[in-house]
Design a protein around this nucleic acid. Structure first.
Lengths: 110, 110
DNA sequence: TAACTATATTGCAATATTACGATAAATATA
DNA sequence: TATATTTATCGTAATATTGCAATATAGTTA
């Protein structure tokens, strides 16, 4: 045991969970916020902004990339990272849909 | 090491990360979807709906509760669980804000 | 080419998560 | 009271995550 039972859930449920999980760490929230706050997406200062060692930051970036939340491309000596709008939009749409469903519910016992 | 460096991040970043993390598992996504799909929030059939053993489901429910995403109250012999609208709304607002910020960005190199 | 800069990978220790059987706790019903 | 029903907790094994030092890789510049 110990491994998530991925096969028992739908593809959408797994994709959503993966993206949520990627955002499920304060360092990765902070990375996203920094990438968004910088006007251009050319950034080589992510390490300096975070209270974590360079390998740790690199690992977090990798996870965000694997989850499809950010994209990266080589930009000379540095690497350019930026947020994938579509991925964020998908999450936002999902939650918006959920909020709507909750609004329409009549009974609520809690 | 192995423990998240919580103190180095803001309260909001930690709270958001906690909630995202709680949604970062397909079983918990499925639980939320089921709670929302049922009209009333009186439900004692969550275990039957999921492909997981009862203790596992109970544990997932506990995590959703700890993250503030669901509320539970005793309802006779069963327990009534339902989604906390405000918590979902907070996440949605955060992502909506993020999407807006991304829309307004001029430069985009990736 | 050599030194420098920026990012990635490896390897490892500490900790957290996932899953479930066994069992407990709490309430309802016969 | 005894039994059934529902949910929670305990204990434990398997696996994943977090963080960093050391090192590798790749591009740039002197």
């Amino acid at each position: 045991m110990g491994a998530t039972k991925t096969d028992h859930f739908s593809e959408e449920q797994n994709r959503l969970a993966n993206r949520m999980k990627a955002l499920g760490h304060p360092a990765r929230i902070a990375i996203m916020e920094h990438l968004i706050s910088v006007d251009s997406c050319i950034c080589g200062d992510i390490v300096n902004v975070l209270p974590l060692a360079q390998p740790t930051v690199s690992q977090h970036l990798k996870e965000l990339k694997n989850a499809g939340l950010i994209k990266g491309s080589i930009e000379g000596t540095a690497i350019c990272y930026c947020v994938d709008k579509d991925a964020i939009a998908e999450l936002q749409n999902y939650l918006a849909k959920t909020t709507l469903q909750l609004e329409n519910k009549e009974k609520s016992c809690c």
